[in-house]
Design a protein around this nucleic acid. Structure first.
Lengths: 247, 247
DNA sequence: TATAAACACTGATCTGGGTCAATTTAGTCG
DNA sequence: CGACTAAATTGACCCAGATCAGTGTTTATA
């Protein structure tokens, strides 16, 4: 079984096992399905110009800043969030290796969220003018970008159902299975994983208090649904968790 | 002052004042800004094949159905919503004249929400294969579609902030000003409008109970912020409402 | 290996808004 | 018009989860 074994609160190292090869990256996949006769490497190099790395807690970009580049995560993870005037914030997404960030801001030219690293993170920087020019040339890239935008809408629609109508228990169950599924899609274990975000972050994403996150995880553990070792989570009964999600 | 004067619970009539000309429609605008040297009419006809009209309460499409067409609203309004397994639902959007519906489902080929008419509604039906073929030919149409997708993401991000972190009062204030702004963009009054949705629908959109919607609107009226005549709303103090939105 | 600083967890109490139960007000239709 | 029906409103009560106030536990740092 492959598990994510990166150190907790990891230190700045070389790209570790939780890295996604360019041909598996969401942007670079160029519309070819998972069974890709892998994309032209020169093409991939043309899309992502620079590499960049940021440390845990660092800001990648702030809301309102002019959009200089999009990013694709090579390793690590990023949270994006919005805030009210008086400082309450709502995390709109956790982004892991292979995910693009900032796509939705392409047409307005301004970042609509804050983006902050949850751990030390390696990124590909994709200049926007460059991407748009390439997209004009490459129909496959265009359809991949459209696909990513559509998926983001579907994800946010499901998030509104969660935030508007689900109980704390349903939210946590949905969250855990969602994380498991995403890791699984990237070839990692869907039963055991290290969360890169704090309990506070989870609450800020699910629209509940940190304490409610803790209490609910503890209850799931007591009921034998998960093994809760702080950030290391083992899913013990995915079946029953799924019935708890109410979706 | 132009106000929306269609009859309450309106009856099936010819297209009324709350109609958007094709050249102002979200999809047909073809990337040209508001100051458009208006688009080629033959082009517009090529995009929207059939007209369709549905009555208040009728289903336009159901979740999970194969995507046959996208729709653009000519007049009237539509709600789209998701539901939990046990029947709680979350409205993900209210759509009015000029809005496209179903765009986000283009790449999956299946409707991801239910869509139901809030009043008698006239639509343009846009076959998907046809749209995609046209988009290949027309760069302006492509960029308009991308723009619409991006805007939908930004809208849903703001909705998650509302659902995850705002109080009932903040939700209602945001909602009223949001409606006002959208009507304003379409050339109607931003101070007086008829809501096409029930109090129950508003609650189902804002993640609060119908009763809380009523109580909060009543309070806004008592405080002189709005004039609340059932579905006819007059904004009396937009300034102060805005400070209540916390965004 | 101390010490500090996050982070995770737990218990006690409180409250915004949900739920339940009427009542009032329009809109519809014979 | 008057009866019927759906929607809107109001009041009383209740509870899921927030908030407050700690106590453990792990990581970071000296």
């Amino acid at each position: 079984m492959i598990t994510l074994t990166h150190a907790k609160y990891d230190t700045p190292t070389e790209i570790d096992c939780n890295t996604v090869a360019c041909r598996n990256c969401g942007i670079c996949r160029l519309g070819t399905p998972l069974t890709a006769t892998h994309a032209d490497p020169r093409l991939l190099e043309r899309i992502a110009k620079n590499r960049r790395q940021i440390k845990r807690g660092e800001l990648l970009y702030g809301m309102g800043e002019p959009l200089k580049a999009l990013y694709a995560i090579r390793s690590g993870s990023i949270k994006t969030y919005l805030s009210t005037m008086d400082g309450r914030s709502q995390i709109t997404g956790f982004h892991i290796a292979g995910d693009p960030i900032g796509l939705a801001d392409l047409t307005t030219g301004t970042y609509s969220t804050e983006a902050r690293a949850l751990e030390n993170t390696h990124l590909c920087e994709i200049p926007v003018d460059h991407l748009q020019q390439l997209a004009e040339e490459l129909p496959d890239l265009r359809s991949q970008l459209t696909h990513l935008l559509c998926n983001e809408i579907l994800r946010l629609q499901k998030l509104t159902l969660l935030l508007g109508k689900k109980t704390a228990e349903e939210r946590l169950a949905s969250f855990l299975l969602g994380i498991a599924q995403r890791y699984h899609q990237r070839g990692f274990s869907s039963h055991e994983f290290n969360l890169s975000m704090s309990r506070n972050d989870i609450g800020t994403y699910l629209g509940i208090a940190e304490e409610t996150v803790c209490r609910t995880l503890t209850r799931f553990q007591d009921e034998g649904l998960i093994d809760n070792q702080r950030r290391l989570i083992r899913i013990l009964n995915a079946e029953r968790l799924h019935t708890l999600t109410q979706s």
